[in-house]
Design a protein around this nucleic acid. Sequence first.
DNA 1: CAGGATCCCGCGGGATACTG
DNA 2: CAGTATCCCGCGGGATCCTG
Lengths: 120, 120
Amino acid sequence: MNKKDMVNTMDCPVTYALNMIGGKWKIPILWTLSQNRVLRYNELKRKLNGITNMMLTQSLKEMESCGLIHREQYPEIPPRVEYSLTQAGLELLPAIDELAKWGARQMALRHTGNNESRSE
Amino acid sequence: MNKKDMVNTMDCPVTYALNMIGGKWKIPILWTLSQNRVLRYNELKRKLNGITNMMLTQSLKEMESCGLIHREQYPEIPPRVEYSLTQAGLELLPAIDELAKWGARQMALRHTGNNESRSE
DNA sequence: CAGGATCCCGCGGGATACTG
DNA sequence: CAGTATCCCGCGGGATCCTG
């Protein structure tokens, strides 16, 4: 997520964070990597159903240069590249977990039929 | 955030959540409302520097129909409309807070010069 | 296997003007 | 004051093919 979405990066840590993990695939990638300590390129691709090479490569690169993801390349043939979360990436998980818990609660309320309550 | 970004809504609560709060302005709006119990349309607009009427109105509508935001309209003249967070909206704040804390930490590390550490 | 290069389209979202 | 209505552009991201 660059340029036009860099709204108030400087004044808001939330926006700053979203600039790193925004976009269609980054959170799914983080999530997938959090459930499998380390994954190869094609493993990751298979688990992220529907992602294209371009988007996967690009997302990984951006998150790598943000320090969220670690890329380990082995000089073998055929090539083998393994991706994992860095410390910063791991520290992001609690936030994503909170989101997940909230989402799960909302989904539950949805088909319980119970929603819409006021705060005042 | 609709259509093309509805990736795996059904299988992932995180994606489900992001479908509600995705887009350029929704989190800033939630954030702003969380710091001012209740705000009128133009107050909100002034605090969200740079947002257009269209985006503000549209974001508010979507979040209202998601049950995140409560809209109270007073039959006065000139019109007066007040926005506040619903219970569901309030419950979202911990997640946003986690993001904020993480973002703040990263920003700090940034100009400390210290970044990039491995998880393994 | 792990990507790179190109082409292309849709829609998210900005600017501007108007209204009850 | 609190929105609507229109026009328009850019880029996020898909599809497809190519390569070390």
